[in-house]
Amino acid sequence: MPVRLSDRIGVGIAYVAGTILIVAVAVIMLWLIVQGLGTISWDFLTGEPAPGTLEQGVSGGILPAIVGTFLVVAFGMAVAFPLGLGVAIFLTEYRQPAWLAKGTDTAIDLIFGVPSIVFALFGLAIFSQGWLSFISNPVGDTGMATAQSFFCSSLMMALIGLPPVVRSSQAAILGVPDQQREAAYALGKGRLTTIRRIVVPGARPGIATGIVLGVGRIAGDTAIVWILLGGAVLQAPPDGWYLPWNLMDFLRSEGSTLTTYIFFSSPAGEGNSPGPAYGAAFVLMVVILIVNIALIRLSRRKIGKR
């Protein structure tokens, strides 16, 4: 233990802060488990939402919501990850021209700071134009598009998933020692080879952290889903939506994710059935946790044999 009083106070504050954090997280998790676990059953996980949710216990299952979350995350990251990694490489390894680098930097900060509902509204304005109806559906013969589909929401999700990918990858790439770049250059390797074979592999754990953070942001977002995927949770998905040949139709249709399901079925939404809301919240937490652990595990390279 430190001897000086000021040191003791500092250490004390650190202990208290750490303890508060742990207690807060533990209480939230416990609450979710206690409240949610009772609702979770095989039927709940694999069923489709029932038509009426005003009475608790008959609100049906959350399978479409789980699938929706996976779809939005997968499509969103499919755009955000390559784009984000590319931006990170540009910002660290090239930074030329300077004005473009500066502009990109500012843009990333802005995207990071702006609430997702702003992007959702913007997306609505864009995707509702008639000529873009191929990624959602036309609205009768008004010449407009619904702007509500997995495609539309995923595209905007890519935007909010981008900043964490860029920032984490950037930090990780900067952490790759210059000596390794020099070693590669001194072996007659070009810049591209050096980036591909030395810099990016060396930055892998940090890049994975970026993906995890991006996945968390996308899976947790409600505003974009509500506006660009649809707020009608209980509208049953099209018949046979899970069949592969209906995939395009399904992706162009409205849907739901776990977050909108939670909102809808919570007492704040129309559903007024906190049980399923807690259950879905618990599932969402577990899903994100699994994705985190899997990605971090995968990113850890084990070099050679011991």
């Binding site: 001194a186 007659g188 060396g202």
Partner: peptide
């Protein structure tokens, strides 16, 4: 050709700097 030059004129650095790969 920079890459050719650097292959014909190799370099060993002050700090050993193997890549984090297998031998």
């Amino acid at each position: 050709d920079l890459n050719l030059l650097r292959r014909r004129v190799g370099m060993v650095f002050q700090q050993p700097n193997p890549f984090p790969m297998t031998i």
